[in-house]
Nucleic acid binder design. Structure first.
Length: 268
DNA sequence: AGGAACATTCGATTTACCTCA
DNA sequence: TGTGAGGTAAATCGAATGTTC
């Protein structure tokens, strides 16, 4: 238990701040009306009183009835005043705690946002590279005889990632029409789509790894052949002109800017 | 068991005081 | 020096909850 004599020191002995009762008594002596009709003026607690209460609050921020009475005696306050002080002090403590929580959350958010921005920039860079490569391909096809096979990316580039991949299949250079058919049959191809990533669920390549299903397109959409192009991440490995013909500005993310996807389901 | 009376706590708000431009 | 704005602490109010009888 905190001892007021220890906290207050010399000042506590003089107790210059215990004026509430005295003043009230003085007023009563001078003017009975002031005593009967006017509520006592608000008076701030003396620093020594506050210091003592703070020490007591540190020990225990709840106030048992006995403790309240004892504190009130020690500080020459009304028990009600002590109770109110503790009540307000708890409110201030809670506010501080909330501010702390807010700061921690904001720091966490800022960190995540920085990571997101970096990934977004990297993604943009890669998309630009893809675009440049496709332009080169176009030029090569229009200007010169078509190089064969039309596959600027060596099969070896992605072969190790795909256990179902065979060099024969790569060298057969499947036409686009056949490609779609193959796409449905061989979901293993999507291993190119970051098979190590936790986001890969083995089925729908755009379904998030978690079970929230926050972004779960209607499966019926996948049955429409003309729309399966977005199932091919970056349209690899068959980087053919036709592949880009039906490619929307951002077909690899369903036509929506990446930054928009992050907030699709956030109401704010 | 259930309800009235009372005490306590809490959040929101008001009030009084203080500081500063 | 007076004054109004804004901040802060003390106090009030009403609702919710717990305890006792």
């Amino acid at each position: 238990m905190v001892n007021f004599e220890e906290v207050g020191g010399e000042n506590s002995k003089k107790r210059p701040f215990f004026t509430q009762v005295d003043k009230k008594a003085e007023n009563c002596n001078e003017d009975n009306d002031g005593c009967l009709h006017q509520p006592e003026k608000k008076r701030r607690l003396a620093p020594e009183q506050v210091q003592f209460l703070e020490k007591s609050f540190e020990v225990e921020n709840k106030l048992e009835p006995d403790r309240k009475v004892q504190l009130a005696k020690e500080l020459d306050l009304q028990p009600r005043q002590v109770a109110i002080w503790f009540q307000n002090r708890r409110a201030r403590y809670k506010t501080k705690l909330l501010e702390k929580d807010y700061d921690a959350l904001k720091a966490s958010y800022d960190k995540l946002k920085a990571e997101y921005d970096a990934l977004y920039a990297e993604n943009e860079k890669l998309k630009n590279e893809v675009h440049l490569l496709s332009q080169k391909l176009l030029l090569g096809e229009n200007g010169k005889p078509k190089p064969e096979p039309c596959d600027p990316i060596s099969p070896l580039d992605f072969q190790p990632k795909d256990p179902s991949f065979s060099p024969e299949a790569a060298s057969n250079a499947v036409p686009v029409a056949a490609y779609k058919q193959e796409e449905a049959a061989s979901s293993a191809r999507s291993d190119v789509f970051d098979s190590d990533s936790s986001h890969y669920t083995g089925g729908n390549p755009i379904e998030p790894a978690d079970s929230s299903h926050a972004f779960e397109p209607d499966p019926s959409d996948f049955s429409q052949e003309e729309d399966v192009s977005f199932l091919r991440p970056n349209c690899f490995p068959k980087l053919e002109v036709e592949c880009y013909d039906d490619l929307q500005p951002n077909s690899c993310n369903l036509g929506f800017p990446v930054q928009d996807q992050g907030t699709w389901f956030w109401p704010y």
